[in-house]
Computed example of a mutant assay.
Amino acid sequence: MVAAVVALVAWALQLMQAANDRREFSLMLAGCMVCSAAVGLATVMVLTFTSPSFLPAVDAGISLDSIVLPWDGQL
């Protein structure tokens, strides 16, 4: 995953350099789109790795088993 993010950033930088050399605005937009894709992928990766399922279980003495939600139909 990290290699994919690095590859996307490198590709975006190459596109933006080519846009600067050729004076083409469309390549600059393509570079920005690739860079935003890299940022989105990195964000999803960080959110996935910091999710509660990756954290060690801590017994705080609070159970959520007794909570009944209105749409459960067990009122």
Rank of each mutant, 00 (worst) to 15 (best):
W71K: 05
V34W: 02
L29N: 03
M45T: 12
S53R: 12
L8T: 00
V6A: 14
L41P: 01
A60H: 07
A57M: 06
V2M: 08
S63Q: 09
V68T: 15
P56V: 01
V44N: 08
A4R: 13
A4M: 12
L15P: 01
D59I: 05
T43H: 05
L15S: 06
A19D: 03
A30T: 04
D21H: 02
V58G: 00
L27C: 03
P70Q: 03
A10Q: 10
D72L: 06
V39D: 00
P70K: 04
A3E: 10
E24T: 07
M33E: 09
S51T: 03
T48R: 10
D65S: 14
N20Y: 08
A60Y: 05
N20T: 06
L69G: 09
M16S: 09
V44G: 12
A7C: 06
S51I: 00
D21M: 05
P56C: 02
V44F: 08
V46T: 10
S53K: 12
Q17L: 15
L41T: 09
G31C: 07
Q17S: 12
A38Y: 00
P56N: 07
Q74W: 00
G73T: 02
W11Q: 11
W71M: 13
L41R: 00
G31M: 04
S66T: 13
M45A: 14
W11G: 08
A30D: 08
W71V: 11
L69Q: 10
I62A: 11
G40W: 01
A38M: 02
I67D: 09
